[in-house]
């Protein structure tokens, strides 16, 4: 499996709204059975950044995070780390992660789960960008001649 691919869907699932992930789960025709290996449990992670994306590492601050790991009946293991305190979100995201690792189910799940979640996230971001752009002030300086 392509880890780049997996990173993509894990990121979409983690950044989706908890209720959207739950709604997507309910849409599954046959929600598969899974068992919890770990969690869901809430803790803190230290978010680190680099100034300008390439400077020295610094600790930006701690954020609340919930993680969960589940196993499907076929032995596939899914993991999820999501921001916030929603155990339900982490659990469903982990279950989706396990399901998406099955090549046979991936195209359908991609279409009915990941793509709509991604579209909603992009719409949300575009909305925020538009609101921010509406308050933009252009500064410019008139060059004054000294003559």
């Amino acid at each position: 499996m392509d880890s780049q691919e997996r990173r993509r869907w894990m990121s979409v699932l983690a950044q989706a709204a908890p209720e959207d992930v739950e709604a997507a789960w309910r849409k599954l025709a046959e929600p598969p059975a899974y068992r919890l290996l770990r969690g869901p449990e809430t803790g803190l992670v230290m978010v680190r950044g680099r100034a300008g994306g390439s400077g020295a590492q610094f600790n930006l601050g701690e954020m609340t995070m919930t993680r969960c790991s589940v196993e499907l009946d076929d032995g596939r293991v899914g993991h999820a780390y999501v921001g916030g305190r929603s155990g339900r979100h982490a659990e469903r995201a982990a279950a989706f992660d396990a399901l998406l690792q099955e090549p046979g189910r991936r195209p359908a799940l991609d279409e009915i789960v990941i793509a709509p979640l991604l579209a909603r996230q992009e719409a949300r971001r575009a909305g925020a960008r538009a609101r921010a752009a509406g308050t933009r002030v252009e500064f410019f300086t008139m060059v004054r001649g000294e003559e």
Binding site: R35, L36, L37, R38, E41, E71, G75, V77
Partner: peptide, 9 residues
């Protein structure tokens, strides 16, 4: 994989 403690804390 095996599950861990039911209530880790």
């Amino acid at each position: 994989m095996l599950a861990g403690l039911a209530d880790p804390v």
